[in-house]
Amino acid sequence: MAAVEAYNITHRYGKVTALDDVSFTVDDGELFGFIGPDGAGKTTLFRIAVTLIIPSGGRMTLFGLNTVNNYRELRNLIGYMPGKFSLYQDLSVEENLNFYATVFGTTLKENYHLIEPIYKQIEPYKKRIAGKLSGGMKQKLALSCALIHKPKILILDEPTTGVDAVSRTEFWEMLSGLKHEGITIVVSTPYMDEALRCDRIALIQSGKILGINTPDNIRRSYSQKLYAVRYPDKYKLLTSLRSLPLAPCPMPIAPCSEPYTLSPEPFGDSVHITLPEGTKPEEILKALETAGLPGATITEIVPGIEDVFLELMKKDE
């Protein structure tokens, strides 16, 4: 049985459509990621999943239980971490944990083994009030609280936002650990690079799912060969690539509707481009040299999640 099944979920706030015909399935024991920017509809989708919102249309079940009709049974099965870490800032680490344990009808002792790998990292600070913890520690505490009743499914809304890189990596390692315990995990993040940590991902933008697959397959779905061009002055490189005779329509700061061939996009220390059919990479370097950018380099690269996202977004428009 699938852990989550969503059929044609639509949700509107007044005139704004937050979710537009979203369907997906999460398998039991899977680590499933929703990747998309702020405002894509991730939080609304998660709130529907945890029975907090009744969708305007469509239907969702968790372990066969409907999120609207069977919300009472479901609430016992879900471990939920909302976007804002839901901790009582004026209660200590221990008090927060005990409180949530009692509320969910269990005790810290009963499920200690489950949270141990996470909790033991913050246990030395158990007397400290939650408001005084660092972002990473808050995140760990919030996860411990969500886990305390041994849920069958963990639903984590942007658990890594605003947390430093070290804590984030640790966090994803913890999630892998929990997956081995057999807990299904649905997680959302605006950070494309975190997608690689998931079994499968859904790319979500403006309330629509652009694609669902394993991270590798998503990357493979990029339609063309992708190249990275490097040159010390990135701005000059970017503008030059746009105005090369090969590229009829530059991508200005505001989006442009006409098709263009090179699609130069700044990516970190390089600019990613795709080549029109029949154009060789060397021709680009030559053209750049003529344009006054000697010594640029070009290499073919494996597209990243963000490249695919960008392509899908453009297609969608």
Partner: peptide, 21 residues
């Protein structure tokens, strides 16, 4: 640019490049 969509992010960084130039 944390949390913005990839297109906006590209445009944003281009603005930054332009500003720096």
């Amino acid at each position: 640019t944390s949390g913005v969509d990839p297109i906006t992010r590209r445009q944003f960084w281009e603005m930054i490049y332009e500003t720096a130039s």
